[in-house]
């Protein structure tokens, strides 16, 4: 392997570690939300600093690779994609932290009935799955899987779109649920953004992998030189 290939392999590993960390942040925030476990929510908030420093580290590594290796072609596309994926992961981490913050702030625990009616948990699970699958698409450079993310995000959008109505119904049924209902709505809004971030990541994966589909060796042989 060339030195640049080594750098890129290392960078890829770092991104995957960041991905796993962000995923675990989302999962913990979800547990904290369901169990109304403020300690767990605080842990997520503390770990958010880890996500941020991860982002800075990856940014710096990308800068160094650009400066020292002048990457081109697939390497260049990978690095450009890595920079953007890094940003998207960091934002996904922010989302986990803000959900955790709602848990910390909320005076009352979230009513199971509202969680059920708004499909919040189903939405949450799907958001985490989407993030996991974009990671797999990234690891395996699988653009078919990356493309499937766009459709899957529709599920999150649908739940997000119907949220105001189900929230309004819950409030109508029992006005006392108003504060927690608003927290639930905010969480749904946040989860919708997780889908958007994953969609952005999927686009980056397609961008960097797909221009890689190159004309086959044989077809380069005859009379193609004329441009």
């Amino acid at each position: 392997m060339t030195p640049l290939e080594n750098e890129i392999t290392a960078l890829k590993k770092e991104l995957i570690s960041m991905w796993i960390l962000v995923q675990s942040q989302l999962n913990k925030a979800k547990e904290a939300m369901i169990q109304f476990d403020k300690d767990l929510a605080r842990e997520v908030l503390i770990k958010e600093k880890r996500v941020n420093s991860f982002e800075l580290k990856i940014d710096r590594d990308c800068e160094n690779i650009f400066a020292l290796h002048c990457p081109v072609a697939i390497d260049l596309r990978f690095l450009l994609a890595a920079l953007k994926i890094n940003t998207n992961l960091e934002r996904t981490g922010d989302i986990a932290a803000s959900i955790a913050l709602y848990v910390v702030e909320s005076p009352v625990n979230f009513d199971a009935d509202i969680l059920e009616k708004t499909s919040l948990i189903r939405m949450y699970d799907e958001a985490v799955n989407i993030l996991m699958d974009t990671r797999t698409a990234f690891e395996k450079e699988d653009t078919v899987l990356a493309r499937s993310i766009f459709k899957r995000d529709d599920v999150l959008d649908a739940i997000n779109d119907s949220a105001p109505i189900s929230i309004a119904e819950a409030i109508k049924a029992d006005i006392k649920t108003l504060p927690e209902a608003l927290y639930v709505l905010s969480i749904i809004r946040k989860l919708e953004r997780v889908g958007d971030q994953s969609k952005n990541i999927a686009e980056e994966i397609i961008f960097y992998v797909e221009a890689k589909i190159l004309k086959h060796f044989e077809s380069g042989k005859k009379g193609k030189s004329e441009a």
Partner: peptide
């Protein structure tokens, strides 16, 4: 001895069309 690829320089350095070009410019 063959002209394998002839293209806009931007294209060549971001997304070359031929595997041999890519291997060469990325040092592989």
């Amino acid at each position: 001895g063959e002209l394998v690829e002839f293209d806009d320089t931007k294209q060549m350095f971001t997304a070359p069309r031929d595997q041999r070009t890519q291997n060469y410019i990325t040092g592989r």
